[in-house]
């Protein structure tokens, strides 16, 4: 009942209390430990966190592509426009992948098949989902290439004939061919240099607006978040420790980890100042600290932090934080 109500408000994606562990014979990697994410139609959510915070695993779960057999989804729900992805049959999943949800992968160098022309690779998605002839699919593939700023006649060329930035444009073209409702961008610009990053981000943003897509932008670059996103979720050790609108996070951040992330950014005004990294290292996901996973690195650690996991605390309609500091107050403690 509740689900239905939420959908009338138009949520493209809802992830509720998702827990995913990678289980092997020797150890259990606790990648995702209770993630809640809501993306409203046409909005962009930035998922920010260090390497190993469970961002990519969360993204893969939306397509039900968590690597088997080690990856186990232990609990939680992934609702795509109200339909549960995790209980779908393989056929239904194949229908959804690429059509309703598309993904832009991190590294364009390896996410294109070297032995097929880029035109063929774009056309593949069209052929699968639009049930059109090969010729028609190739024609549309050319149009998609033009859309991402590559001359259509280059559709007969192979990936090695393209530069890194152009390959990523091709990957974007593949993702957008069937105008999906949700676009997952998994660090789409990490493998590119800064000038190309800006171009690619601009392109993604324009196309997203044009087709009214929702987007999940996975990144560890706060600059990208400020540019592209409407809302931000900060992930740490497989949990969302703080969530809010851009203003909530950038101007009114509450969680000590979020503060650490912003402090770690170099300041362009004070060029001589040293960087302030967060002390310590990301915890070993096979052996997470008790209580709040951030407490060994936290400057504001209290006794309770190592004993119990903090609950979600809603500071306002949009702003939510998981930290014991805010048990009794909404005011910033930092």
């Amino acid at each position: 009942m509740e689900v239905k109500k939420m959908n009338e408000e138009g949520n493209t994606l809802e992830i509720k209390n998702l827990v995913i562990h990678y289980i092997s014979e020797e150890e259990v990697v606790k990648a995702v430990n209770g993630v809640d994410i809501i993306i409203k139609a046409g909005k962009t959510l930035g998922l920010v966190g260090e390497t190993g915070a469970g961002k990519t695993t969360t993204a893969l779960s939306i397509l039900n592509l968590v690597p088997e057999p080690q990856g186990k989804i232990l609990s939680g729900e992934v609702l795509l426009q109200g339909r549960s992805v995790l209980s779908m049959s393989d056929l239904e999943l194949e229908d959804i992948r690429g059509d309703k949800v598309a993904m832009i992968f991190q590294d364009p160098m390896t996410s294109l098949n070297p032995v097929h022309t880029v035109g063929d690779q774009i056309a593949e998605s069209i052929e699968i989902h639009r049930k059109v002839s090969k010729q028609e699919a190739l024609k549309q593939a050319k149009e998609m290439l033009e859309l991402v700023g590559i001359p259509g006649e280059r559709s007969n060329e192979y990936p090695y004939q393209f530069s890194g930035g152009m390959k990523q444009r091709v990957v974007i073209a593949i993702a957008l061919t069937c105008s999906p409702d949700l676009l997952i961008a998994d660090e789409p610009t990490t493998a590119l240099d800064v000038t190309i990053q800006a171009q690619v981000l601009k392109l993604i943003n324009e196309l997203r607006r044009k087709y009214h897509m929702s987007m999940l932008m996975i990144t560890h670059d706060l600059g990208i978040v400020a540019e592209v996103c409407d809302e931000v979720s900060i992930a740490y050790a497989g949990r969302i420790v703080e969530h809010g609108t851009l203003e909530d996070i950038f101007d009114n951040l509450r969680h000590p980890y979020t503060k650490g992330l912003f402090d770690a950014l170099p300041d362009i005004e004070a060029r001589r100042s040293e960087l302030k990294p967060i002390k310590g290292l990301m915890p070993d996901p096979t052996n997470l600290p008790s209580g709040c996973a951030f407490h060994p690195r936290c400057d504001y650690v209290m006794e309770v932090c190592s004993q119990s996991l903090p609950e979600n605390k809603w500071l306002s309609e949009t702003h939510c934080v998981q930290c014991h500091l805010y048990k009794d107050t909404n005011e910033s403690m930092l």
Partner: peptide
């Protein structure tokens, strides 16, 4: 294990 295989799955290939 190469990413383009995962990418192919992500666009719904059988």
């Amino acid at each position: 294990g190469i990413e383009y295989v995962e990418a192919a799955r992500a666009i719904g290939s059988t």
